[in-house]
Lab assay of single mutants.
Amino acid sequence: MDVFMKGLSKAKEGVVAAAEKTKQGVAEAAGKTKEGVLYVGSKTKEGVVHGVATVAEKTKEQVTNVGGAVVTGVTAVAQKTVEGAGSIAAATGFVKKDQLGKNEEGAPQEGILEDMPVDPDNEAYEMPSEEGYQDYEPEA
Rank of each mutant, 00 (worst) to 15 (best):
V77K: 01
V95H: 15
I112W: 11
L38K: 07
A17G: 03
K12G: 01
G101R: 07
V95I: 10
V77Y: 09
K96G: 09
P138C: 13
G51L: 05
D135S: 06
G47K: 08
A11G: 12
K97C: 12
A56I: 05
E20M: 10
T64E: 08
E28R: 10
E123L: 13
A76R: 14
H50E: 08
K10V: 03
S129T: 08
A90I: 09
V82L: 08
G41K: 02
M116H: 14
S129R: 07
T81S: 04
E105Y: 10
Y136C: 02
E35Q: 08
K43W: 11
T54W: 12
D115E: 08
G36R: 14
L113F: 14
A89V: 13
D2L: 06
T54Q: 02
D119C: 12
Q79W: 04
V49E: 04
A89C: 11
E46F: 14
Q62L: 07
E137A: 12
I112S: 14
G132F: 07
N103D: 14
G47Y: 12
T44R: 00
V26K: 00
K43N: 00
G7R: 13
S87V: 04
S129H: 02
E13W: 13
K97T: 06
A30P: 00
V52Q: 01
E131C: 14
V70C: 01
A78G: 09
E105G: 04
G31V: 12
A76D: 02
N122E: 11
G14F: 08
V70Y: 02
E105D: 13
A18G: 01
K60Y: 15
V55E: 01
A19E: 03
E137Y: 05
P117C: 09
Q79N: 11
P117E: 03
E83S: 02
G7C: 04
M5I: 00
G7Q: 12
V63L: 04
K23H: 13
V71G: 04
G67E: 02
E123R: 05
Q79A: 09
V66T: 05
V48S: 02
V82Y: 06
V26Q: 00
A89S: 07
V66N: 02
T92H: 10
V77L: 10
A76M: 03
L38W: 03
S87K: 05
K60L: 08
Y136T: 08
V71Y: 14
K102A: 00
D121I: 13
E131A: 13
P138R: 05
K102D: 09
E28G: 05
A85H: 02
G51Y: 05
P138N: 12
V77T: 05
T33H: 00
T64K: 07
T81G: 06
E126V: 08
Q24L: 07
A69C: 00
T33P: 00
L113D: 13
Y125D: 05
L100Y: 02
S87Q: 04
A17Y: 09
Y136M: 04
K45V: 13
K58S: 08
E137G: 09
K21C: 05
E105K: 03
T81L: 09
E123H: 14
D119Q: 08
A76K: 15
E20D: 10
Q99H: 08
V16H: 11
V77I: 07
K80W: 08
A11P: 03
G73N: 13
T22R: 02
A18N: 15
Y133V: 03
N65F: 07
Q24V: 15
V82S: 13
L100V: 15
A53T: 11
